[in-house]
Design a protein around this nucleic acid. Sequence first.
DNA 1: AGCACGCCGACT
DNA 2: GTCGGCGTGCTC
Length: 842
Amino acid sequence: MDISSYARVAVNVPAISREFDYLIPEEFQGKISAGSLVEVPFNNRLLQGVVTRLVNIPEVVDVKPIISLVDPFPVLTARQLQLAGFLSETTMAPLCQCIDLMIPPGLSSQADTLVELIDGNESLDGLGQTEVRLMKQLIERGNLRLRQLEAAIPHVPLQGSIRKLQQAGKIKTRSILLPPRVKPKLIRTASLAHPIDSISNLKLAGQKAEKTQLRRQMALEFLSNEALPVDVTWIYAASGCTLADLVALQEMNLIVLHETEIWRDPLKNVIPLDQAKPVLTSDQKTAWETISHTLQQVNTGVKTRPMLLQGITGSGKTELYMRAVEDTIMARRQAIVLVPEISLTPLAVQRFLSRFPGQVGLIHSRLSPGERYDTWRRARAGMLPVIIGPRSALFTPLENIGLIVIDECHDDSYYQSDVLPMYSTQQAALKYAEICQCALLLGSATPDVTQLYEVHRGVWQHLTLPRRVGVYGNKTFLTSARGEVVQSEQSGFPSDDAGQSGLPHVEIVDMREELKAGTRSMFSRPLQEGLQKVLEAGEQAILFLNRRGTATYVFCFDCGHSLRCPRCEIPLTLHTTQDGLVCHHCGYKRQMPKSCPNCGSSRIKAFGTGTERVEAELKNLFPTARILRWDSESTQGKDSHEIILDHFTAHHADFLIGTQMVSKGHDFPLVTLVGILLAETGLNLPDYRAPERTFQLITQVAGRAGRGERGGRVLLQTYMPQHYAIQAASRHDLNAFYEVDIKERYRLQYPPFIRLARLLFQDMREKNCQEQAEKIRAAIAHKIEIENMGASSVGGALPCFFSRQGGYYRYQVLLRSPDPVRVLEGIPLENCRVQIDPPDLL
DNA sequence: AGCACGCCGACT
DNA sequence: GTCGGCGTGCTC
């Protein structure tokens, strides 16, 4: 037989990570291939699955046939299947969950259980609490699926109660597989069956009323002017007729009704910007030569190294992305542009849409499932050569990818840490670029230490844009990282604009001195003065508070010394429950000291603060100022990000208080002052990446100042002015930061010198949580010992830094190893989430 | 995951 | 003697 008759299928049940062979029935021969989405029988249930490959000989003799084909075309390309396999191996997540990443939501479905009431047996006598709640749901709402019941009765295991009710003869259950929730959208259209000479002479309605006759005549007249089938709603509007009239006309053989498939296009109302393609600056030209050369190589089948484009805020990275995309389209290949989750900032996206009208598919969280599905289908059909979106956009089905761009590649949202698979987009993209033989371009103003290390090892190419492109009025000029104008791109550039833009000047305010001088406010005197000036000048200011770092850590108000673990050198955290200071990595404990071990001062205290307090104090200091707060609490509603942004941009507020969000690439031309309330809060988190995060955050936040003609300054308040992350950030000096941090990582053996795996345990009862963690810790320690994996080591079963979340206790076990997956293979890892190369250890 | 099969304790 | 606890194993 020349066609493989069997298909290997990954069934969509996360707990089953094996694949199973099925017979391809006659009717599907040639229609099913690798990547097909199918329905298969499994035990006595019906499941959805994806064909991973065709085989000639099945693994077992007794195979069942595939029941149906959900989508006539494969939902995954061969390369996507390869990528899914890679993800599954490297993240230890089941293959079907990796495959599911690549299928639009609503198309794939997992089997569910339908719970039905048995009539006449609805008494609740003698039932337990959970059973009563279940019965009440069923009586109120009728038959429900298990997932609906779980949603209605959260955090309660329902299996046992359902079994009891079933045995009591009150309910019955049955496995079901819901059909896809998304479908191609069809509209009804109509056209004339044949040309009609004289409509008015036709006896349309027979004996029917004159009105009816008139409506139908008008409909025909309307259609006689249209060459192609027309949407029936247009006919309704033009003639006042209804579907019944059209059906009647079809029965008279005068018109033909059709079902036409249409694409839901969320971008059809976007108005392109009228923008000329700008002339590249000399920095851009240099970087472009490398990009262009790399694309040429890639398009002739030569393997290339990933490119790291390190460009300060406003240095023109987007223009280079667009040119790379343009070259890729010219080579008849497709491009994927990844952007951070919330940075789908209208401006950058609009520039893309305008440069490539009709060719861009934009993916974002606010698309309806139908829009998302259609964007996916259009991409699969080869109609969209450019895809822009968050990390999930990497998994768009495209046949011939030539370029992957990761914008703001340092961003945390590129790591998926909420649901399986917990994967790094960067690692996935590196592998995918290899599979697709395409170019990979990563861009950021603040690439992280491991990324820079790849450059220093020579594994990645390095491109830099060290100066801002300024376009104010008609003048284009360049400014260096220090703020001075170093080169004018256009003749006749007036020198008196020099120094007014480029990166803003950063002043460090030593809060210990402020304290000595008697300032008790969280706003230092320079900051208060600065804010006053901003108000008087009718300008705007941003006040940044690193919320993530507001947990209680202990430090000395006199010398700035913060208490650290003698073994891990990470900050100790005050735990009221454990009555003392705890290290969250190794479990080291000590009493709260009465005086500072460094200087002997008795003013050593636990520290922490919040945005609400900042707002209250600011209102107190500036009663007339209009204050806007931008944090996770104030952005609950739909569109709230845009509303706050627009509100501030339109100068309806003078001061914006914000957390991380203000660091994302928004452009506020009126902002001339950025106040960083406490620069080091992030440094006191027990995490090896704390210095790097602090450096990135300060640098990104500082980049918000001085984007307009008025220039800007940054005031950086701190009790630790000498810390290398703060010093380097104040000088916009990434290299200096890198040089120190990479040595620290080497000394303490953290990535990139070793790899980490983090095992997270959650349980309502702390004892259970700790015991489960300990059991697995011991199993790993045992394996390391008996298999002689000397380079690997496992830490203790310890509470996470965020030790409780949503009522659950959290414990973790940290593994350090050159190959963490190899160490964890064969260890029974149920009840725990595994993060390979975790982005943080909190 | 579900569900069957299977082997030991307390009940009509 | 049976009903039922959940341990182990299988699903193409």
